[in-house]
């Protein structure tokens, strides 16, 4: 596909996404879409760590939670605006993930996964037991909505779900663009080189540890910003939202969609947020169908839905390329 065609398709889809609140006026649907946007950011940030750098993290919800708590507590206790706290939340979560990354990223594979999972549990314990600050299992209530947004010419109050939808859309698009720029840069090449073969990457002069920590910190920071958005959307947070089960949920999203692609994590996030809701009509079979569907997808599409489509398409292009190469040789 030509670059122009690709940009055109992306623009068309974005315009289409702008009309979603007109088509679905029910709050229930709009809530699902806003949550999809939050999960899209989380999945993209996790894909940067797991998909592009190959470092399996099972503690991503911890950074999501840290961002949510930092942002919520700053606004509730000190009256800071969401527009300030989202950056502080991102920075705080990024800083924590930097420190954790330096410690744990020398581990590989299962060891890394288990260690990050324990980190997630640890953070959950802090949320639950540092009652003086986090209010423990009772959670933090009364989080203010984002202050009205002053755009040149007019002011938008963030009140309805549609407002959050547009804000979340802008957020998700910006994060997607950032991740796109990152993985298509020198840094992205280094990350992929590390994922495919770390020794080889080091032997050609890539400081593997530095790049792994960088990806981990950026991923953690973005998750923290998503947490901040979540906190100021739901207006209440408690430790049950940020468990290891939630980390696994995010992993499932990127595995389902295709973790080494950009569109895959978004697809996984939207699909796996919306699907369980639509399966409600199946009653008690809901989770069974969900589980079976996941197993089927992982067996038949190990690269994820989008990854499989992409590799099918790339494979055809490669075949035609090598045919062209050979005919050149013969001529």
């Amino acid at each position: 596909m030509k670059v122009q065609a690709r940009i055109f398709i992306i623009l068309i889809s974005l315009v289409a996404l702008l009309f979603v609140p007109r088509l679905f006026s029910m709050d229930y649907y709009m809530h699902m879409f806003v949550m999809s946007e939050i999960y899209a950011v989380l999945a993209l940030s996790l894909a940067l760590i797991v998909g592009f750098s190959g470092q399996v993290s099972m503690g991503h919800a911890a950074f999501y939670g840290i961002g949510a708590y930092v942002s919520a507590l700053l606004s509730v206790n000190f009256g800071l605006s969401f527009w300030v706290t989202i950056w502080i939340a991102g920075f705080a979560a990024g800083l924590v993930s930097f420190m954790i990354g330096v410690l744990v990223l020398r581990l590989r594979g299962h060891f890394l996964a288990i260690t990050t999972a324990f980190f997630g549990i640890l953070v959950g314990l802090v949320f639950n037991n540092w009652i003086g600050v986090t209010n423990g299992p009772m959670g933090v209530a009364g989080i203010p909505r984002p202050a009205p947004l002053n755009l040149p010419g007019f002011t938008v109050a963030i009140q309805t779900r549609a407002h959050y939808y547009y804000l979340g859309l802008a957020f998700a698009v910006m994060v997607a663009f950032l991740v796109y720029r990152l993985v298509n840069s020198r840094i992205g090449n280094a990350l992929i080189a590390i994922r495919e073969n770390e020794e080889l990457a080091r032997s050609i002069g890539i400081n593997a540890m530095a790049y792994k920590v960088l990806a981990f910190s950026i991923g953690g920071g973005l998750a923290g910003m998503a947490g901040s958005f979540y906190a100021h959307y739901i207006l209440f947070i408690s430790p049950v939202t940020f468990t290891v089960a939630e980390s696994i949920n995010m992993l499932v999203m990127i595995i389902f969609g295709g973790m080494s692609t950009l569109f895959g994590p978004i697809l996984g996030a939207v699909f796996l947020t919306v699907l369980p809701e639509f399966l409600r009509m199946a009653g008690s079979l809901r989770l069974v169908i969900y589980g079976v569907a996941l197993v089927v997808f992982i067996i038949w599409m190990p690269l994820g839905v989008w990854g499989s489509l992409k590799s099918f398409w790339l494979g055809r292009r490669q075949a035609s390329l090598s045919e062209a190469g050979e005919s050149q040789e013969h001529s």
Binding site: A190, I192, E196, N197, E199, L200, S203, I204
Partner: peptide, 29 residues
Amino acid sequence: VSLGISQCPEGRRVWPQMTVVENLETGAF
């Protein structure tokens, strides 16, 4: 590596999912 020692490890280890040019460019990291 930046001092000027470069290594070509055993077993033709290339990055199979990258193109030829991308492999080479990564070598110039």
